[in-house]
Write a protein that binds this DNA or RNA. Structure first.
Lengths: 336, 336
DNA sequence: ATGAAAGCGCTAACAC
DNA sequence: GTGTTAGCGCTTTCAT
């Protein structure tokens, strides 16, 4: 209706004038701090509605010396892994009055430096740092004690607070599920050896198998994170170890390749061979034939926890160390 | 090293004191506006380094009456479609001094309202709104004239500025590619009919075919956006229309299902039947067997353009209307 | 209960 | 060139 030229320029003094009081009083009414009579509060609120006044949080922040914003830095171009984490974090943060700045550093130190500078200038209250792999990374280059939480990709400084996937437990979960189903010969097909997650899941798997007095069949099949590798590994594996009746896969993509490979080799999944993936990447795992039992990495949960830890740090109660979040078994049709 | 208790509290006056000048002079030196002698500039810069001073952008923004921030609202939970768009936009915005607030409205009007209120309070300079589908959406509930650009999901108000995928042109591109390869009988397998994109791509496809005096074979195969539907459609299609030698698919997921379905029916792709997908969803299209020729929807580019249009609007030169961005044919092995 | 005044950190006229 | 002053929009003593 009314075309108020300059944008939303209403100030607290405009409200004051309209309500016939002074700016200080409006402030009191709005913040709830200080005494204001019911009557004037009424008038003030009416005035606020009338001119659609919204307090300038920037000015407020200058005064309060904090901005109620945090920076979320990912090195992962917001791919499959960091997106759910960021969503979880944003969700938890937004529930308070905290807004989130989005930064894609693309794993480039120059860009990361730039974002830190810009956001420190904006007086963010803290940072959440996330990445793709579970390998450790250098701490963020901010002064010691400034609130930072690492999600998914832990800091190499053990004094920092990091929330990560419990890869060892994931491996155990897979092993236990196979054992419960009575499987005797479990193989492990996964990604490149230099991923910490790859090694830890393997250790977990074997820890579970060891409890039943056995261990994984054959060597670990390291490869890359692709379906093609999964198919190839299925061939190698069934040839080298025809006794295999269960395969744990380091990702759903690999798992799907394994399942496809097995089908094409005439093996029945899960009757002949059961398969478990990792990630619970919906479209891949659910679209597989048969659909893939997998271990959900709970990324959104990791994001939410990271947000909570960050809030604590901002409140002056920093956490320290690496917190590993358990995954969750999602049973579909590739196991019985 | 030094544990400066309260965080980064250095103010422009601290710098001034250290450099033996007044705050105003420091401001001049830092902003570059106003005259400062080389010598004092030196001293000021030295002081800045020494106490690691970073001007408080919040205070600056209060003064300048703009924040150099924008809100990015997605209704899509940052899934596959909006993520690339947001990345492109963030990239273009970050190149200036603009930071981006991340908001996931989850297509919930209450949440959207909330984010708008919060971010207006933070005095964002504008909004980019993005979603999953290309169906129109209600305009964002901000006052007329406030800078907003819609990406991917256009506004229902034609006066707004929207940047979208050129779905019609995508259909044409598919048709033309088939024709160039000498295909005679082209079918169309796609998603639900209520998607604007589904209809428009079909129109484009038939426009291209019409130029060669033909039209699509059989009815349009509407279904859902899944591999399973693609497989099923491949069966229906080859039974009902054995003459088909080309299939255009409304998504890579469907395309992959079609390719798998054809292979299992003993058809050779592309020899017997050529297949084109849509999206260029890397892991799906490249992982298909054979790999899928597809049409890249250029989502990052859409994001970048949206950002540029928003910058124009913020600068007082708003754009209006729907701008459609052409896709790009990516040839792989499912066509010849 | 309300107003007056000072101040958050910064910038910009205007003096000198 | 540099300092002084006022002011951005808001909050918070401190009077009254």
């Amino acid at each position: 209706m009314d075309d108020e030229g300059p944008r939303n320029r209403a100030t607290i003094r405009d409200v004051a004038a309209l309500a016939g009081v002074t700016a200080g009083t409006v402030s009191k009414a709005l913040t709830g701090r200080g005494q204001v009579s019911a009557a004037t509060r009424e008038r003030i609120m009416a005035a606020v509605k009338e001119i659609d006044f919204r307090p300038n949080e920037l000015a407020r922040s200058v005064f309060e010396r904090r901005s109620f914003t945090v920076g979320m830095i990912t090195t992962d171009s917001f791919e499959r892994f960091s997106v759910p984490v960021m969503l979880g974090a944003e969700d938890a943060l937004g529930a308070g009055r905290i807004s989130v700045f989005l930064c894609d550093s693309r794993d480039d130190p120059i860009r990361e430096r730039h974002y830190i500078d810009v956001l420190m200038g904006r007086r963010v209250d803290g940072f959440i740092v996330t990445g793709r792999s579970s390998n450790k990374r250098e701490p963020l280059a901010v002064e010691r004690g400034f609130p930072v939480v690492y999600a998914l990709t832990p800091s190499s400084d053990p004094r920092d607070c990091s929330i990560v996937v419990d890869d060892r437990r994931i491996g155990e979960t897979a092993g236990e599920h196979f054992l419960r189903a009575g499987r005797k010969s479990v193989a492990y097909v996964t990604g490149p050896e230099y991923f910490d997650a790859v090694r830890q899941r393997g250790e977990g798997l074997n820890a579970a198998l060891a409890a039943a007095g056995t261990r994984q069949t054959g060597q670990t099949y390291f490869g890359n994170w692709t379906e093609a590798w999964g198919r190839q590994a299925a061939q190698m594996l069934t040839r080298a170890h025809p006794e295999v009746d269960a395969i744990y896969c380091g990702s759903d993509l690999i798992g799907r390749g394994v399942v496809d490979g097995l089908r094409e080799l005439g093996k029945s999944v899960p009757n002949d061979i059961a398969v478990i993936g990792t990630d619970n990447w919906q479209v891949i795992a659910a679209g597989s034939r048969p659909s893939l039992t997998t271990i959900d990495t709970q990324l959104a949960r990791i994001g939410r926890i990271a947000a909570e830890r960050l809030l604590d740090a901002i409140a002056g109660k920093p956490h320290s160390g690496i917190e590993a979040v358990a995954g969750e078994l999602v049973v579909r049709d590739s196991t019985n």
